[in-house]
Amino acid sequence: MDRNFARALSLVLKHEGGWSDHPADPGGATMKGVTLANFRRYVKPNATKDDLRKITNEQGGPVYRRFYWDAVHGAELPDGVDYAVFDFAVNSEPGRAVKYLQGVVGVAEDGRIGPATLAAVRAKPHAAVIHDLCGRRMAFLRGLKTSGTFGKGWSSRVAGVRSEALKMAAPNTGEGTTSKPSIPKPFEPVSSSPVTTPAEPAKGLAYFLQLISKSIAALFSRKEH
């Protein structure tokens, strides 16, 4: 069930952008986040850099799905967590993204998602997993030798991933939202305790009735005399 693949891919592509062939980038020539090596592996075995430059979304989609989304079992991860892990995988390879996820949820960091990893991820608050994963990812990126060149862009990217991932998680879990205090309906008693009538008004009424009775009695008494 790939309910979030299209949405996650559109978000990834916003960060990946277009053509890149920076000499400091170990990934080499890249277009829309697809490296030349993966383009040759999944789309066109004899592809050149010019072929990669012309890659279409239809060609790139299967690469993202098979090499990244399926590699991290995106379809089986909770909403929001799937996107956070997927983007991490695209940026830093699937094996590393999975190991960091496993470190977050406290299972063996073998780089392969299985039943134990999935159970541990699902058992932990999804917002907490997203926050912790993005924090560890950023710490890893800051430690790279190329952080001086790409650090600002990476920081912006991870911040964006964190924000969008939390939005994806919130509708189904209520996480990342602030609960509002309940407001009593008009004329609805706030307390559930029984409402008692104060004693003083009853005493006051009796007092005035007594005064009226005494006044009437005094009036009749004067007439008789």
Score class of each variant (00 low, 15 high):
Asn57Trp: 12
Glu58Ile: 02
Gly60Leu: 12
Val63Ala: 08
Val63Asp: 09
Tyr64Met: 04
Arg66His: 07
Tyr68Gly: 05
Tyr68Asn: 05
Glu76Trp: 03
Pro78Trp: 11
Gly80Asn: 13
Gly80Arg: 10
Asp82Tyr: 02
Asp82Ala: 00
Tyr83Ala: 10
Tyr83Cys: 09
Tyr83Ile: 06
Phe86Arg: 06
Phe86Lys: 00
Phe86Ile: 01
Phe88Lys: 09
Phe88Asn: 10
Ala89Glu: 05
Ser92Leu: 08
Glu93Met: 08
Glu93Leu: 08
Pro94Gln: 04
Pro94Met: 14
Pro94Gly: 07
Val98Pro: 00
Lys99Pro: 03
Lys99Ser: 07
Tyr100Trp: 13
Leu101Pro: 08
Leu101Cys: 01
Gln102Thr: 03
Gly103Asn: 02
Val104Thr: 10
Val105Phe: 07
Val105Ile: 07
Val107Cys: 12
Ala108Val: 15
Glu109Arg: 11
Asp110Leu: 01
Ile113His: 01
Ile113Asp: 00
Pro115His: 07
Thr117Phe: 05
Thr117Lys: 08
Leu118Thr: 06
Leu118Gln: 13
Leu118Ser: 08
Ala119Ile: 03
Ala120Phe: 11
Val121Gln: 08
Val121Ile: 04
Pro125Met: 02
Pro125Phe: 02
Pro125Tyr: 03
Ala128Arg: 00
Val129Ser: 06
Ile130Pro: 13
His131Glu: 15
His131Pro: 08
Asp132Cys: 07
Leu133Phe: 14
Gly135Cys: 12
Met138Arg: 13
Ala139Asn: 12
Ala139Lys: 15
Ala139Pro: 07
Ala139Tyr: 10
Phe140Trp: 14
Phe140Val: 05
Leu141Lys: 12
Lys145Gly: 03
Thr149Met: 04
Thr149Glu: 10
Phe150Trp: 02
Lys152Ile: 15
Gly153Asp: 14
Ser155Leu: 13
Ser155Trp: 11
Ser156Cys: 08
Arg157Ala: 05
Val158Pro: 06
Ala159Gly: 08
Gly160Asn: 06
Glu164Ala: 15
Glu164Tyr: 11
Ala165Trp: 10
Leu166Tyr: 12
Met168Cys: 13
Ala169Ile: 07
Glu175Asn: 06
Glu175Trp: 14
Glu175Met: 02
Thr177Asn: 12
Thr177Val: 08
